Simulated scan of single mutants.
Amino acid sequence: MTDRLRHLVAIPLFVLAMPLAAQDMSAFKTGPVFDDFGPHAPVAGAAAVPEATELRHSFDVSEAAKNGKANRYIESAARFINMHAAAGVEAEDIAVAVVVHGDASMDLLRQSAWEAKGQSGVNGSHALVRDLLDVGVRVILCGQSAAAHGITPDDLIPGIEMALSAMTAHALLQQAGYSVNPF
């Protein structure tokens, strides 16, 4: 196949695939709990969340934030809270924990530790983590990952808990009735 023929075939396929990749995010809004994080959209026809529902949910986060932005996997906790509060679940009936390990451990550093560890710019996850802690979300760092990254408790944003390991944190959270986010 000639280069010209390859291009003639590839261009229409690319154009046809473009609408599949496009997403309409216009319906996604933040709030009612977090104004700066956790966008979610109303879903027409979705079953109502049963009255008196209690949600205990944990998020497993190992991938670091990208390009100085807030960690999108940590932000899933804010989206979970906003989405369910908007759906009528009472704040006292939503318990969330974020278990952080691996490279995402760096997203839990206070700014001075961020810089001391050679990270450039600002920690884009700092405000998000602070907001989560302020509403009672448990943010738990894997002690094994902390040791591997040379992170001490003094390096962390105040309020972050340290566990022996992420596995330990998840086991204890499950014993306390938390489900683990499957994705």
Rank of each mutant, 00 (worst) to 15 (best):
P153I: 02
D3I: 08
N67E: 14
A127T: 15
A163G: 06
D155F: 02
L55M: 15
A85P: 00
L173F: 15
A44M: 11
R79A: 11
F80A: 12
H7C: 00
D35H: 13
A91R: 15
L173G: 07
P50M: 03
G159F: 10
G118N: 09
Q144E: 13
A65H: 09
E92H: 12
G118R: 10
A46T: 05
G45R: 07
A171W: 06
A87T: 03
G102C: 05
Y178M: 10
A78G: 04
L156P: 07
M167L: 08
H7R: 00
G68M: 08
S145W: 06
D107L: 08
L5W: 00
L108N: 09
F28A: 14
L172T: 09
S112G: 06
S62Y: 11
M83V: 03
E115V: 14
V100C: 06
R6Y: 01
L156C: 06
Q144R: 05
P32M: 09
G159Y: 04
R130S: 15
I140C: 06
P32N: 10
I157D: 02
A48R: 13
T2W: 01
D131M: 01
E63P: 01
L109W: 09
G68V: 11
G31T: 12
L172Y: 12
D3E: 01
L156H: 07
L55V: 15
F183S: 14
S76W: 09
L5S: 01
G88I: 06
V49E: 04
L133S: 04
S145T: 08
D24H: 07
Q23N: 08
A86W: 02
D3K: 04
A113W: 12
D154E: 15
A27G: 13
M25W: 14
P12S: 04
F80Q: 13
V129P: 04
H40K: 02
G121L: 05
V98M: 08
L109P: 09
G31R: 12
S120F: 06
S125A: 07
L172A: 08
C142I: 06
E92V: 10
R79M: 13
V139W: 05
P50R: 00
R72V: 13
A77K: 04
M83H: 12
T152Y: 01
I74P: 09
F34D: 12
L20H: 07
R4C: 00
H84L: 06
I160D: 00
E90M: 12
S179P: 00
L20R: 08
E115F: 02
V137K: 08
A85V: 11
A147S: 12
T30D: 06
Q174I: 08
R6I: 05
L55Y: 12
P12T: 04
V137T: 10
A27K: 14
Q111H: 14
V33T: 14
N82I: 02
A163V: 02
V137R: 05
V122D: 14
F80N: 13
G88D: 06
G45H: 02
H149C: 03
P42A: 13
M162R: 15
D131G: 00
R138Y: 04
I74V: 15
H40S: 14
L16V: 14
A163C: 03
S179F: 08
